[in-house]
């Protein structure tokens, strides 16, 4: 397994910490006076998504995490696992519900998303920033109300529920920002 020295620490570096892969999001060198130097690191656990702050003695070595991000197509779920495919190699990957987590509410079959692999198995899945999904259920809005003043909940084909303006009807395809979960606009087909 390859290792990193603290002097190689930088944002985006993937390391193993307490057995889990972590992504470094902030690295600060602390050198008190003439004394021992330290690296103060903020990192995100790529499995649980939790952020932690730890300090390492400068010069220490940590194990590198063999973590890769890949664009993949979501294929289907067999009820237990979720199946993805690398569109270049046609290689298929099986992800657990824990790895897919909340992301599933933005994924419909054949959509392209980002799968994060650790030692070649999926540990988390991120949807595209914007997805286009059909509204399967919403209250009939007030025709002619285009003021955008109010809103109503709408259920999408993947099961996600988003707030949409009153005038948007059932059956419409809308664009949603998955980072905020907010309605962006209607998609003219």
């Amino acid at each position: 397994m390859s290792v990193y020295n603290t002097s190689q620490f930088k944002n985006g570096l993937k390391i193993i910490f307490n057995g889990d892969p972590h992504n470094i999001v902030d690295n600060q060198e602390v050198k008190p006076g003439k004394g021992q130097a330290f690296n103060r690191v903020k990192m995100k656990n790529l499995i649980t998504g939790r952020s932690i702050e730890k300090t390492f003695k400068s010069g220490e070595k940590v194990d590198a995490a063999d973590v890769m991000e890949m664009s993949m197509q979501y294929l289907y779920t067999d009820g237990e696992f979720y199946h993805f495919m690398d569109p270049d190699s046609y290689e298929q990957y099986e992800a657990s519900p824990e790895a897919v987590a909340d992301c599933i509410k933005w994924l419909k079959e054949e959509d392209i998303c980002t799968v994060i692999l650790w030692d070649n198995s999926p540990i988390s899945v991120e949807p595209a920033n914007f997805v286009e999904l059909k509204i399967t259920e919403t209250d009939p809005g007030l025709r002619g109300d285009t003021s955008g003043g109010g809103g109503k909940p709408a259920t999408l084909e993947t099961g996600a529920v988003v707030q949409v303006p009153l005038f948007v009807p059932e059956g419409e395809i809308i664009k949603v920002d998955t980072r905020s979960g907010e309605y962006v606009g209607r998609v003219k087909k």
Binding site: G35, F38, R40, K57
Partner: peptide, 9 residues
């Protein structure tokens, strides 16, 4: 080194 840590961090 532990005192340096407490001091600096």
């Amino acid at each position: 080194a532990a005192l340096d840590f407490m001091f600096g961090v």
